[in-house]
């Protein structure tokens, strides 16, 4: 027998089960999750316009649904996902242009994306409910 049966003490490539994801990786998968979720948000927007096209009664029914606790929950998710996808999407466009790819710049952009999402979501809800 040669020594090949012995477990090799070699470095292992990082994979999802052993690798603690950096923040940028969490933001990346969040971009994809919010993207899928926003399609649901588009369904809500389409329902709004379709309800108006069918007349005042269906528009009132849709408005009542959106004004319900479930409606507010959906709007909260829609707005947060929209601002996150907008902010992180702009970052992705910078990456596609070959910019902001250094680790220091990526870490700074992480914070800009998170702060931008929180600020824009809070601002629009403040303006909407004021």
């Amino acid at each position: 027998m040669t020594q090949t049966a012995k477990p090799a003490d070699r470095p292992l490539s990082p994979h999802l089960q052993v690798y603690r994801l950096p923040l940028a990786a969490w933001l990346s998968i969040t971009h994809r999750i919010t993207g899928v979720g926003l399609t649901g948000g588009m369904l809500l927007l389409t329902s709004w316009i379709v309800s108006a096209a069918y007349g005042g009664e269906s528009y009132a029914a849709f408005s009542a649904f959106v004004g319900s606790p479930l409606g507010y929950l959906l709007l909260a998710g829609f707005s947060t996902a929209l601002f996150y996808h907008l902010c992180n999407g702009i970052r992705h466009l910078f990456w596609d242009a070959g910019l902001n790819l250094e680790i220091v710049e990526t870490r700074r952009a992480n914070m800009v994306v998170i702060a931008g999402t929180v600020a824009l979501t809070a601002l629009s809800w403040l303006l909407a409910l004021a």
């Binding site: 316009i49 379709v50 096209a53 005042g56």
Partner: peptide
């Protein structure tokens, strides 16, 4: 298509 057609219906008068 549904959203766009509905927008046009609302715009041109429900």
């Amino acid at each position: 298509a549904l959203g766009i057609v509905s927008s046009l219906i609302v715009s041109f008068g429900v």
